[in-house]
């Protein structure tokens, strides 16, 4: 399926887990990383739990490179800002007014642990869960079908919107619209590009509304699904345990900080 997604099709035990089990597992890991004391808990969870899970799901290299790509700008920013502008502290070196501090660098490293944990956890989930099974799961878990519709439709239409934006950019450049140059020139190009995108898609609203109503949306009847999502009694038990765990971590995290 050509949807807006990070899904990496593989055959693995992680892929075949029920999506609900996986999302709860991700939330548990993130809750643990943010709630437990200790500066390096985030890194610990990433290296000793998420990475082995990624191996199991056969997406390790994929996860590593994507996490690296999304985390790098944060890392650069947080390290520069927190070390160079820390205020009072032990200088790493001093050149004129430039004097990064150890304490700032440490704080940045600790922050990065949390960022990498959140990033890699959710990316692992996205990479090993088919978007369409996620949808069916949400419905089965009691999410209203309107919310499910919004999520699944968004994932389907985003790629076409991205393409359409680029086509409009080309169409307007072909009419002599400058899109490169100084800030004023670039800012002036904005409106002629976004208006066709927005107006054109608003025109589709009515057609789409008629289309889904004619398919019996909002009829109030329970839908059946063509795709069966495999689940096991064991996973059902595990999900209850995980849910309890998440709750425990949140309570612990709050109490510990009070």
């Amino acid at each position: 399926m050509n949807a807006f997604s990070m899904y990496a099709a593989r055959e693995s035990g992680l892929h075949s887990l029920h999506p609900l089990t996986k999302i709860l597992m991700t939330l548990l890991l993130v809750a643990a990383g943010l709630a437990l004391p200790g500066n390096w808990t985030g890194y610990f969870i990433v290296v000793f739990i998420i990475f082995p899970l990624a191996f199991w799901g056969r997406v390790f290299l994929n996860l590593l490179s994507t996490t690296w790509k999304v985390s790098l700008p944060f890392a650069i920013s947080v390290i520069l800002i927190q070390s160079f502008f820390w205020g009072e502290g032990t200088p790493i070196f001093e050149i004129g007014v430039l004097s990064p501090k150890w304490e700032g660098a440490m704080f940045a490293a600790v922050s990065m642990g949390k960022i990498i944990l959140v990033m890699s956890g959710f990316l692992l989930f996205s990479m090993t869960t088919r978007p369409d099974t996620l949808m069916i799961t949400l419905k089965q878990a009691g999410v209203p079908s309107s919310i499910a519709y919004i999520i699944v439709t968004t994932l389907q239409i985003v790629p076409s919107f991205q393409r359409k934006a680029l086509t409009i950019l080309d169409a307007q450049r072909s009419r002599g619209l400058e899109t490169e140059g100084n800030l004023y020139v670039r800012a002036r190009a904005f409106i002629p590009i976004i208006l066709p995108l927005v107006l054109g898609s608003l025109m589709e609203v009515e057609e789409r509304a008629i289309a889904i109503e004619s398919r019996g949306f909002n009829s109030g009847k329970k839908e059946t699904s063509l795709i069966e999502i495999p689940d096991t009694p064991l996973q059902k038990v595990i999900r209850r345990v995980i849910l309890f765990g998440i709750f425990a971590f949140i309570v612990f995290g709050v109490l510990w900080r009070l």
Partner: peptide
Amino acid sequence: ASRVGYVFQNPDEQLF
């Protein structure tokens, strides 16, 4: 664009 005009297939991709 001052030498070559290009009419795109879908008019909705340029009207604003």
